[in-house]
Simulated scan of single mutants.
Amino acid sequence: MGAVWLAHDRLLDRDVAIKQVLTTEGLDEAEANEIRERILHEGRVAAKLSHDHAIAVYDVVLEAGEPWLVMEHLPSRNVARALALVERLPEIEVAQIGAQVADALATAHAVGIVHRDIKPGNILVADRGDIVGMAKLSDFGISRGAGDLTDEPDGVITGTPAYLPPEVARGMKPTEASDVFSFGATLYTMLEGQPPFGLDEDTDETVRRAAMAQIIPPERSGVLTQTLLHMMEPAPQRRPTMAEARDEILTAAFGPGTGPQIIGIPLRTEDGTIPAWAARNSAAGLRSPHSAPLPRPYRAPAGATAGTPPRRFNAQPAQASNAPLAIAVGLLIGLIIIIAVIVAMI
């Protein structure tokens, strides 16, 4: 749709990103107007959302009849590029990205916005500066707001094939439940190193697998496995809401009530450092500006069923510290018995 430029707002003295529509010269008036309207639509939709984990849209400027979208500038790399570097991301880091972006999407859904194109390339992670490690959702270019009119004909598929929900792959209109599936597929890709329908250069084959809900069973998703499968239920009505998905991610990885320790805070490893893939040059491995330790992940005990509530276990039995006293008492009782036997014999 256009090129994105780094610019400086001289009035407010801040860097911004500006999306420029590539020239509409040579297009007929109807096509040119459609492209201009897309940019204006993206601005209108994204401006309804204000969230720490979503790229902010500041303004739409008309210059010589062409719209320029003025947005928050986040020096970053997207998750798709990160996966090209490291193949898979650690479970604990995916859980943080998942909870944070799910919170932004839950807010978007609450104001009637359906993103419709959630994928690793649309999740940015700041790679320098004071907020290095901060994850943000971007690109609302094909989003729809509540009450939006659309001239898309029935049967047109909207989105990226590798992350399509079954109902969208079959030609239905995307809904909030569709976003939940696409986000689950995105988290799956971060953990497994490939999308849930596999890697295939044949787009039609990918769409066919999506329509049939032919998900490759996850093998590396650990404590997030059940949450991902819930988010990627073939039937939309069986999926959680985005807010419920956020809470399931937090509970599975960190325990209930841990949202304030994860949301609104840059990513960090379990020991509080900046993930190497998320930072440029010397920032990698340094202590995060928000280096409070992460909540200890839950691990179910051996033999626990999927429905067993998570519990923490101490490394040693609670009564271990009283062992010396118990031994001393036992010796004393034994000595008393011996003395009693000797006295009886006399």
Rank of each mutant, 00 (worst) to 15 (best):
M134G: 03
T227A: 15
E201G: 15
L6G: 09
T308P: 04
A32M: 02
V16E: 01
A320Y: 04
A326C: 12
E244P: 00
P301S: 01
F197T: 05
P67L: 09
G307Y: 10
G264H: 08
E25I: 09
D52I: 07
P317S: 13
A279H: 00
G255S: 10
V16Q: 02
L6K: 09
A326Y: 08
A323L: 14
D59C: 05
A95N: 08
V156N: 07
E87G: 03
A340F: 10
N78D: 15
A326H: 09
P309Q: 14
I92Y: 06
S288F: 06
D127Y: 05
I338A: 15
L191M: 02
Q20E: 15
H53M: 03
A284H: 08
L69D: 00
K136D: 02
R296V: 12
A344N: 12
P161C: 06
A304D: 07
H109Y: 05
G257M: 02
S143V: 07
V223Y: 03
H290T: 12
L62W: 07
V132N: 01
G112Q: 00
R220T: 07
I157Q: 06
A328R: 11
A146D: 06
L286F: 06
I97V: 14
M134H: 09
L267W: 00
G193M: 07
W5L: 12
E233C: 12
H51C: 11
V132C: 13
L12D: 11
V111S: 13
I262P: 00
E270Q: 12
I337G: 10
G184D: 03
Q194F: 15
H230N: 14
P67Y: 05
V86G: 04
V329A: 14
R88I: 08
P218C: 06
R268A: 05
A320V: 08
I216L: 12
D154G: 13
A252Y: 00
